[in-house]
């Protein structure tokens, strides 16, 4: 499981890999935290639960990461522990994430959005991987 920043001329991009889809969501969130230089406060821990539905796993991933951007901007919150479940609900993909985090002490880079540009979760010998382009 892991992530790395990959070169993009104007914006930012991450390659993320994990043993399974749930792990991929966790690593993508951690990668986005690293990309934006999010530093969490040591105290005032807080929890949130996020649920969504989508046509496919890529759509769930974009919605999930976009939700984290919203929390950072509007509630000054970031999360570093995630319990992710993906499942089918009446023929659509569903996602439930229980998240623990804390107020942001600092954030170095503003990420404007999570894009769908060439977004494709691919199976690999070690699980799955995805490249995500962020508008910054």
């Amino acid at each position: 499981m892991g992530f790395e920043e990959i070169a993009h001329t104007a914006d930012c991009a991450l390659r993320v890999w994990a043993d399974d889809l749930e792990g991929l969501f966790v690593e993508a969130a951690r990668g986005m935290n690293a990309l934006s230089g999010a530093r969490l406060a040591a105290s005032q821990r807080t929890s949130r639960t996020f649920e969504t539905e989508g046509a496919d796993a890529e759509s769930l991933l974009v919605t999930f990461l976009s939700e984290l951007l919203y929390y950072a901007e509007q509630e000054n919150l970031a999360f570093d522990h995630f319990n992710v479940q993906t499942f089918k609900r009446s023929n659509v993909q569903a996602l439930k994430v229980e998240m623990d985090g804390a107020p942001l002490e600092s954030l170095i880079k503003a990420i404007k959005a999570v894009t769908y540009h060439n977004l494709q979760i691919r199976p690999t010998a070690r699980g799955c991987e995805v490249e995500i382009v962020f508008d910054v």
Partner: peptide, 15 residues
Amino acid sequence: GLGHQVCTDYVQELQ
């Protein structure tokens, strides 16, 4: 953020 959210919303909706 307002513009970023408008685009995020519609890129998602238009899928």
